[in-house]
Design a protein around this nucleic acid. Structure first.
Lengths: 277, 277
DNA sequence: TCTAGTATTCCGAATTATGGACTTTTTTTA
DNA sequence: TAAAAAAAGTCCATAATTCGGAATACTAGA
């Protein structure tokens, strides 16, 4: 699954390897990872992998299961991350919307957030039907351009940025979906016209979905709200109601998100006073 | 705040520094962190800090805010971290119980999990009253021995381990609560007798709580279920009902956790087949 | 008990990180 | 608005750290 990723351009280092290790551990967090498998998957020598793991353990990011010798991410890692009070952020703000939507439609609802060239699934509320989606579970990533939520975001990025992303992502997209650049551009135009991304053609058999962007104050997408459901359940009528509700929740989130985003709006100097060590 | 931590014993490395950077970024995630401040706080030369940050950015763990030049953790980091909490699946398994409990009592319910010498709050469902707890929000940590949920776990660890923890944690505990070792040991015995930890003496004024352990098949605590409420609401009668319900939910979780905990019970070989790269 | 297959440790070779000095950019002050 | 100050980012010779082959210690299965 998780490739070594990216062009190895320039500053490779032991740190990169360590990060790859963390990612690999995350990808196999349930069963844990054995040293050998890790080393093989990431093309590391066994001693190197071992040394890095040892350091990561010393730093509390990783732990070794006592039964088997397998390694996995430590909870402290999770704890550190959640300490980062991005908590005040979109996740908490959006959660009530997700719950409302899920309860209203009896479908699975997703919150995707843009991260560079990808959309990351930040939250997900399950409906009663088992849904297969591109993003997979919370934490999953898709290239911008695949799936409704993801396309909804892509469609509402500044043109220049969008172009760059399309250029970069097109190969990745074609790799995973039967779409070419023309299809994608047509789709984007449609999304911008309607304000929502609907999947007519089924990219996963039997599945369908609908996504709308969550915009910042400049009208640029930072996230998206989407639902995934059985294709048979997405009739014309339902689909229009759903779109409306998604849009209104997205707007609600935008409003809560925007009024004060100090990290973006205020001159950096104004904040600095607080951060005396 | 965040110290450079620990004895610098043995394997120091650039990786350690990188981890310190990540922790520092986590601690200052609201405003973002400037290169200089980071370097000063962590005793790094500016070029080193810069180089490490560059690598972390290349790996997608960190991003640079475009307005100021400050750095902060990227969403991908959070994405990886959230995988860490999914390890045992206990989060998903326990959530329904939390919801039920919270709905039944109208109080705040916590799921704590053991992590080395601490208990980490993995999940928390809010009741209508604002509750202050030791663990704080999701992701928060307390030393094992402080608070009901935490004591519930401590009480059901193997004796030897428990002793080691008490020895290690006692200073940290006394630092934060008016309890000495004798009090703690008496408390633990009581918990083991009753099967639940109840806070009679109020450690946070006006607050009270009740916690029960979630045991693995060997009767060792891996987590705890607890509620936090106003002291005035924890009458004798309520308290006994609540205890019963907590216990029954804890047992339910245990059962779901145990019958198939492949990572623990099955010969490692049985699992390996699946984990072909 | 023996025999893989792994995990862990050692250690000399060499690749990599390091920080002083320098350039560029941003912010503050006059 | 310009000049000064502060911070960000870059370069490079030096020094230290990482690297991986090989040896050793475990562990599970036969």
């Amino acid at each position: 699954m998780a490739q070594i990723s990216e062009s190895d351009a320039g500053g490779s280092s032991s740190l990169s390897k360590a990060v790859h290790i963390l990612k690999d551990l995350a990808a196999h967090s349930v069963e844990g990872v054995r040293l050998i498998d890790l080393a093989r998957r990431l093309n590391l020598s066994q001693p190197s992998a071992h040394r890095l793991l040892k350091t990561l353990i010393a730093e509390g990011m990783v732990e070794q299961m006592s039964d088997s010798k397998s390694y996995r991410l430590s909870l402290e890692f999770f704890s550190i991350a959640s300490q980062a009070s991005r908590r005040e952020g979109i996740l908490e703000i959006a959660r009530p919307s997700l719950l409302r939507l899920s309860a209203t439609f009896n479908d699975t609802v997703f919150l995707l957030v843009r991260s560079n060239f990808d959309a990351i699934c930040l939250d997900r509320v399950e409906g009663p039907f088992p849904i297969r989606s591109f993003t997979g579970d919370i934490g999953g990533k898709v290239p911008l351009g695949i799936g409704q939520g993801s396309i909804a975001i892509l469609s509402y990025l500044p043109e220049e940025e969008r172009e760059a992303i399309i250029k970069f992502n097109m190969p990745r997209i074609m790799d995973r979906a039967a779409i070419d650049e023309v299809d994608l551009r047509i789709k984007i135009e449609e999304v911008r016209r309607i304000g929502a991304a609907q999947m007519n053609f089924e990219m996963i058999e039997g599945m369908a979905g609908l996504g709308v962007p969550v915009l910042d104050r400049n009208g640029i997408a930072v996230a998206s709200l989407s639902i995934g459901t059985l294709a048979s359940r997405l009739t014309e009528m339902r689909s229009s109601t759903i779109t409306d509700l998604l849009k209104s929740e997205a707007r609600a989130i935008s409003n809560k998100l925007n009024p004060f985003d100090p990290t973006l709006r205020y001159p950096a100097s104004a904040l600095r006073a607080q951060s005396k060590s």
